[in-house]
């Protein structure tokens, strides 16, 4: 699939005349899912329980966030310990291992309907293509979100030895645009 994405990158943007096939769209989705299922994303894309995860470094796989953190329904920890108590809302090189990552935005969890942790590829595919369950994004808006969100940018360049998704942010945007141009197909489609 990475070869396909690179070919599209070289060939230029997909146009209406050469809309990708469903098979190409599904292949692009596989790239997207490789990102959305990566711990750098699933650590915070958690369900209604609002308990984020840690992963890698010395924590091992799928460890619950230390300090008994509960982001709660408000997703910012307002009723217990606010995320911002440690995750200061300023741009940072995030170069110190085990120190809380910081970005130029208020640290928070995504809405619970955007939970990706322990979700299947089909589940996330159907969730992301539907504005009712993807926080109201059109595909164009989702691409813009990828390109402009400080959270997303940090996820692809988290610093301090943290693992990164298997493709880069540029490739992710290409894959999303390709998937959208193919009509947002999911493997669960008839």
């Amino acid at each position: 699939m990475r070869g396909l994405v690179l070919a599209v990158l070289i060939a230029g943007p997909v146009t209406a005349q050469d809309a990708p096939t469903k098979a190409q769209g599904l292949a692009a989705w596989d790239d997207i899912y490789a990102v959305t299922s990566h711990p750098r994303c699933t650590n915070c894309h958690v369900g209604a329980g609002g308990i984020p995860m840690w992963n890698g470094l010395t924590y091992g796989a799928d460890a619950v966030h230390g300090m008994r953190v509960q982001a709660g329904e408000n997703r910012v920890g307002a009723e217990t310990m606010p995320c911002r108590t440690c995750h200061i809302g300023v741009a940072s090189a995030n170069a110190i291992p085990h120190a809380p990552p910081m970005i130029d935005d208020a640290w928070r969890l995504p809405p619970p309907e955007l939970a990706w942790l322990d979700k299947s590829s089909e589940d996330i595919c159907e969730q992301l293509r539907d504005p009712e369950t993807n926080d109201g994004f059109t595909m164009d808006e989702l691409a813009t979100h990828l390109e402009t969100s400080a959270f997303v940018a940090w996820g692809f360049d988290p610093g301090a030895g943290r693992s990164v998704p298997p493709i880069g942010l540029d490739e992710m945007v290409v894959a999303l645009n390709l998937w959208a141009a193919a009509g947002t197909p999911c493997a669960s489609d008839p």
């Binding site: 008994r68 953190v69 307002a78 009723e79 310990m81 606010p82 108590t85 440690c86």
Partner: peptide, 19 residues
């Protein structure tokens, strides 16, 4: 914590102070 949450549950107290 108590300024933000004036009626905390025991679980919330534990969560707020665990850091």
């Amino acid at each position: 914590f108590l300024d933000l949450n004036s009626e905390p549950t025991d679980d919330q107290i534990d969560a707020a102070m665990s850091g």
